[in-house]
Amino acid sequence: MSRYFTEDHEWIDVDGDTGTVGISDYAQGQLGDIVFVEVPDEGRQLTKGDEAAVVESVKAASDVYSPVSGNVVEGNAALADDPSLVNSDPEGEGWFFRIQLSDPSELEELMDEAAYEAFVAKL
């Protein structure tokens, strides 16, 4: 399984042709206390870069973009009851949605973990 990151601070774990998407630890730290998350419904078709989810902190609302194109197979229902999972475990239990990739070659445009770390260090 490999993990990729976007410059907009989404991560995607890819296992076969299915990806799990969330926001990075850096992103949750910048947002602060998360009070609401809206995840995409199963069956929604997303194109890379589409607004896929909404995350709201005490301070602000932010869009989460899909890092790849594909078909949503599951939204994380646990976030409706406990949006703070995004703060406590952003790159684990706080995942947003799973997506069946329609074009795995899009992953080549994303950063690996080391590249993302270097990217964040410069922010």
């Binding site: 907009d8 601070h9 989404e10 926001i23 992103a27 995350v55 301070k59 602000a60 609302a61 932010s62 869009d63 989460v64 973009y65």
Partner: peptide, 14 residues
């Protein structure tokens, strides 16, 4: 991810 409302909210805080 982008802070769509950070601008609007930033107005509150600015």
């Amino acid at each position: 991810m982008s802070d769509t409302d950070l601008q609007a909210r930033g107005t509150t805080l600015s």
